[in-house]
Design a protein around this nucleic acid. Structure first.
Lengths: 223, 223, 223, 223
DNA sequence: AATGAATGAGGTTTCATTCAT
DNA sequence: AATGAATGAAACCTCATTCAT
């Protein structure tokens, strides 16, 4: 039935509208000061309507954050190659951060907001059922794997414990992003933030790279 | 008068009871879900009574956070010596974190919670009036100074920009702590967290140390 | 859509219900002892529901008072004619008071309550921005104009200073009404009050009329 | 016992201190925004101590107002002579208002504040037990008597109903005073207020005087 | 006599969520 | 599918009054 199809399409469209609106409001005002009423009003919908598309506020936010996470992880995945050395891979990871932030700071910021809401992830890994691996955990696993590779191929410090260092890196990255997310939107000076990210990543890169590695890889370019 | 003295002591005791209770509740449930009612009930006091000791909720929390901040900064200050090289000084800073956390994790956690509440500090430094320098900013300045010293004495990477890297370090440290603070209290495994802190600090230490420095200083001991 | 129309009507009806209830409670108990809870309970609504119709308590009250003020001023305006002498006009003003009070004492009482809440008007006139002239000030201006007219046409005492006497008259009238408003509702004997108003107005009328005026105009009829 | 005497004196002194303080605060900020705490603090006493001298807040205020009322009525009584004509007597009453206000505006203002708090007096006269005649009612009776005298001696309008007109006059006077009392203390321009009082009283004087009276008595002098 | 800690009822406002229409 | 009215719990704060000391 064409009608059913159309309805389906419209439903998806409305859902997106809600998510887009919520995202914009959160980025503008911070997650804590956005109410369901705000979202509804901005969508030109009723508050009740939101509950037709999302079970509750938490579910709405969760989807928003999942979305951002997926996009980012997808982005990184595309750029990673199995042939990369560990050092190259972690470098790619961070360049992806910087690139994605440069293109659409929204995604990165939302990624940070999620962290700020939810309980601390890395410590909770064990608790999570294996089935529904959340985005942050996927990212954590990705980092773990990259580190292991780097240790194996000699581009990263041999003494690193991949699992533990992955958490560290995850948290450092998360920390920067949360700080950005907390900035009132009108103060988010992207150039400054990019430089901040670069500084941070370069320090950590030097901190985990093997002394024998190609030193030129320890610098991250910002175009 | 003994009576007046006693009353004074009791008043201070009650005040402390309130602060202690608030602290415990915040550490247990997170700052956002602690209400004045909760604090009052746990103290076996009426809500109104809280307002005899604190002007308002914000003042109560402020005192709590300021307390933690002061203790920590005091602790660090005592351990720093003007004769230390920059590298030694930053090492002392981090060992202080680890030590204070080991002795009284509350202080460190509260320090983190405060960060999580306030807007992102490093970016806002310029705005703050010089008069009432808040604890986080005092810390930031301390880090800046240490970095400058280390660059001057050749123990830290010459290429570092002290102001920018201070922010980075501040955020990294803050990030770890916030993550800890977000953990539900029953999951805070202190041994694990201590190892985490150590890992992080060692990575950053390697990342900012000068290649010519004494390599033995790049390892942080945990007793 | 009939449905939309109906909803609109019902909304307006509820709004009126709230206003009516608030008005009744204020008239019964005095404005200071009426709470949002009282109003809600009497309406068989939840407290929260009131905030769907009014931004806050002040807005609710403001509407109530503005309503009463507008009705009264409208009433007077209709009865005034530019051909009236000053004496006739001021007579019309007072007859309007008496008539409106006779028909709906609520309006007059509310007009008085408003005065009792706000800081003393006549002295503050200068401060008010010209844009949003409040009802009491509109009334004051109206009196001023009438007085000026009466002095010009010889029906009022030549020695009167219109501006100052307008304040006086405003206050005398306000005073009576406030006194009425303060009466517990069960003691408001309308007949007595009407006679009181009549006495007062006649005294002032004699006090401001020119000796040459038509003496028959110095008596106010009560039907 | 000298000691008992001294204690008594001190008790009376404290009581006065409390009353004086309360009066000052009320005159400054308005009766509604003065709390027991304010009074206590300003007295450098504890809140509890106030309750040693007064049963409750209402009693404290009542005394304050009674005080002002007594002083004023005393003042008027001294100036009234049984030989005065009615017109002269009412003139004396109003000149007393003006004089007392000129000397100590506090008394007059408090007299007004009381009115603003209590339910409307004139209408309640009948209800009051004859025993403890309150100040406002004493004033009302005084006016009644003066009016009767004036009607009898031909200096006031024969057609006046003394009881009813007394209420009227009482309310007009009260109205002015209440308006003054409501003014924030920093806006009380005594000269302006004196002129206002004069204007009002002269109007009413003309309104109640007999046409045959001595016209020179219809003007009130302000020195 | 005086203190001052404590109470408890009351006040306004916000917001996620439900549900009849 | 959508509305929007309504709820009810929760939040922060104030203040007259009481009472053990």
């Amino acid at each position: 039935m064409g009608i059913i199809e159309r309805k389906k399409r419209e439903r998806i469209k409305r859902r997106s509208l809600i998510l887009d609106t919520a995202r914009a409001l959160i980025l503008e005002r911070g997650v804590d000061s956005v109410t369901m009423q705000d979202i509804a009003t901005t969508c030109e919908l009723s508050k009740g309507a939101l509950y037709l598309y999302f079970d509750n506020k938490e579910a709405l936010l969760a989807e928003l954050f999942h979305e951002a996470g997926s996009i980012f992880i997808e982005y990184v995945n595309k750029r990673l190659s199995p042939n990369d050395s560990g050092l190259e891979a972690i470098r790619t990871l961070w360049m992806s951060y910087i690139e994605v932030f440069g293109k659409s700071s929204d995604i990165i910021v939302l990624f940070g907001v999620k962290n700020a809401i939810a309980p601390a992830f890395p410590y909770l890994v064990e608790k999570t059922s294996k089935k529904e691996i959340s985005d942050p955990i996927r990212l954590l696993r990705m980092i773990e794997e990259i580190l292991a590779r780097g240790i194996a191929d000699g581009t990263l410090e041999a003494s690193l414990d991949p699992e533990r260092v992955a958490k560290t890196i995850f948290m450092i990255t998360g920390g920067i992003i949360e700080n950005i997310a907390r900035l009132p939107s009108e103060m988010r000076n992207n150039q400054l933030i990019l430089e901040e990210m670069q500084t941070t990543f370069e320090i950590v890169l030097r901190g985990i790279a093997s002394p024998q590695c190609d030193r030129s890889l320890l610098v991250l370019p910002i175009e």
